[in-house]
């Protein structure tokens, strides 16, 4: 996942797009090193150091990675999209977000 995510971050660098993680690793300090090593620039919620932490439990996540694609208005548009399908969905959704910005909408 990292290479694809890194390429999305650079492709959409100046546009209304963000990756937000919910990280379920055990050791925060180890994770911080890995984040530097892998150039993971996006921000992540800390799930309490466990795959059964509070956020993943509430969201009923039982497989990793689990992905949600959310539009600029906060509406869930896709679940579990990866690879080319994810790229295509972003090509549709990011321009919509830009349009909303231009017209002064949210």
């Amino acid at each position: 996942m990292y290479p694809h995510e890194r390429s999305l971050v650079s492709e959409y660098a100046s546009r209304p797009f963000a990756i937000i993680g919910v990280n379920s690793d055990k050791d925060r300090e180890v994770l911080k090193e890995r984040i530097l090593e892998e150039s993971i620039t996006w921000r992540s919620f800390w799930n309490g150091g466990s795959t059964s932490g509070p956020i993943s439990t509430q969201w009923n996540v039982s497989g990793w990675p689990t992905l949600y694609l959310i539009d600029h208005e906060g509406v869930i548009r896709h679940k579990g999209l990866r690879g080319d399908l994810l790229d295509e969905a972003l090509k549709e959704l990011v321009p919509l977000a830009e349009k909303a910005l231009e017209t002064g909408g949210r």
Binding site: L8, F17, A18, S56, V61, A97
Partner: peptide, 20 residues
């Protein structure tokens, strides 16, 4: 502390992940 809604206005890829 931050909120998911801080990112309204942007398309967000929410990724439940772990480095394993």
């Amino acid at each position: 502390v931050f909120k998911l809604s801080d990112y309204r206005g942007k398309v967000v890829l929410l990724d439940f992940w772990g480095d394993w």
